[in-house]
Design a protein around this nucleic acid. Structure first.
Lengths: 298, 298
DNA sequence: TCTTCTTTATAACTTTAAGTTATCAATTCA
DNA sequence: TGAATTGATAACTTAAAGTTATAAAGAAGA
């Protein structure tokens, strides 16, 4: 049993076929037959129930499949960490962030870059779920997100907090108001983005607390889409304040909700168990400092 | 990079020498030189700072070493789980327990054996720390211990609880008493066994609570030794009740401590993530049932 | 039912790489 | 300085991973 055989085994189990797995692995089909034969020999049990027209994992096969997946993942991670270790000095940071933070983050990145001009950064714009996945698979070193999840071993550092405001179409009945109360929103149609699923829950609870259940008619991927739906008069939405500064437009109104105090927190997130080369440590340190400044300002 | 090269690399790093590692791996020294050379080539970095008289891991080497250890451990576990998977039906259970539970456990094993006559059991007597280690390395399927540790992902099932009694030498001033209070123990010399480190802490706290700090003069490995030290008049000790039933002797006195209500709980412990074949599941089920019975009786 | 297609297994062969022995170069230490 | 120890290099052997060609078995369509 070695990684090669586990890789072969895993690919067959995933494909559900020797022939297709062979193509995927860029080897011949008999080579695969051999690998599995000797693997079964070594382990003393059959791994696949196989016939010419169907392929199924046996009980021991299922167990091995689970392990094989984990070990192969570990191997991928080793390669990624070794790449970081090799590049110490050269420096390269992979960062994934929710797109709506571009404006704020560029400031932080600016500070970092002025201190570490030799370090190259690859900034990807990802959804909150992708950030978690890509951190787990070591594809990104750092993430910037507003959703802090307790279930994994990630470390979250709060960077800043901001308020939410209500966004309405230009000709809405709130157009001459600067602030309203939640109860005024009864009978309105709501648009929410998946990006802010946390605020959605909080908001719905706040509505229920004052005695009504808001009708959420649209759910979109990004804040941008939510915003443009509002501009087209399809409903109203609750969005973070900073987003509006980033995307100025005269085709909508902003109204402050007096009795809705919930804030969104933006976090820097990373895996503390992973080896993080000096420039990344530096980025984290700068973020921590930034975080303190912001918190003092608040 | 494959397991073979990781194994070679890991052995060299552990031995601190190519030559010795080669002997340990039962291969020639040039073969090792080759492995490391090609590994360094593949990863694009030096793994060892090497000269004829000293060998040291580089920074990337240190990182790889950590990972290699984990991956090699995973592989060992795969073999062990696959052995269980292969032997489904034949049945074999490795159990590790603290020796002082022999008496109780033999009852439970008896019930299990009468329901599963074909299953062979290997029962090892281990210290509490070894039980944790051997569960982690998949060397035993089940453990029986009185120390429940939150730090790992083990599952603990309480089997039974019992009281502690005070053990004194035959000619001790308590010899005609059946019960005393903690405060009466001021100025006594104590003997404790490592096996019961939990009770030791609880007991010391109880003493401090009534206003004195007990002097622990002896610490031994096993309850047996603690007991024999008491019999030889070197001090007094607090031991679980069941232990005395197991080891009758006239060379000591047993006294109940009225205001010390702490009990010891004995647990069945296992790793729920690990694949556990049907007979082991059965053993766990029987234990759970046993556990309920005991708890009802209390 | 026979033919065709698909899928895995077997056989014979090639090539790669892991391991071997012999030897060298460098360093420590008596 | 010379013996001893340690890792690197060179040349060779061998085991195994992969190749192509082909067989066997089951499913599907005419």
């Amino acid at each position: 049993m070695d990684i090669r055989s586990l890789k072969h085994f895993h690919t067959i189990a995933t494909c559900g076929q020797f022939t297709r797995a062979a193509i995927q692995l860029h080897i011949s089909q008999p080579a695969l037959s051999n690998t599995i034969k000797s693997l079964e020999n070594e382990l003393g049990c059959t791994l696949f129930e196989r016939s010419t027209k169907s392929l199924k994992l046996t009980e021991p096969g299922e167990i091995l499949y689970k392990h094989a997946g984990n070990v192969l993942e570990s191997f991928d991670k080793i390669y990624k960490e070794m790449e970081d270790a090799r590049n110490v000095g050269k420096g390269k940071i992979n960062l994934g962030m929710i797109e709506s933070y571009r404006y704020f983050i560029s400031h932080m990145i600016g500070i970092f870059k002025s201190k570490n001009p030799a370090v190259s950064m690859k900034v990807r714009e990802l959804g909150p779920n992708d950030i978690v996945k890509k951190l787990e698979s070591f594809d990104i070193h750092l993430g910037i997100t507003s959703i802090a999840n307790d279930h994994n071993n990630f470390k979250y550092i709060p960077i800043f907090q901001e308020n939410y405001v209500l966004l309405t179409p230009p000709e809405h009945r709130f157009k001459n108001l600067t602030s309203i109360e939640i109860i005024d929103l009864k009978n309105e149609t709501f648009i929410h983005s998946l990006e802010g699923f946390k605020i959605r829950e909080t908001f719905i609870k706040a509505c229920e607390h004052v005695g009504f259940s808001p009708s959420v008619e649209f759910e979109t991927e990004s804040l941008e889409t939510a915003c443009s739906l509002v501009e087209n008069g399809l409903g109203i939405s609750v969005v973070p304040e900073s987003f509006l500064a980033l995307n100025p437009s005269k085709r909508r109104n902003e109204v402050f909700i007096k009795d809705f105090a919930s804030k969104r927190t933006v976090y820097l997130v990373y895996q503390p168990e992973r080896y993080l080369p000096p420039p990344i440590q530096d980025f984290i340190d700068i973020t921590l400092q930034f975080s303190n400044e912001i918190i003092v300002r608040k």
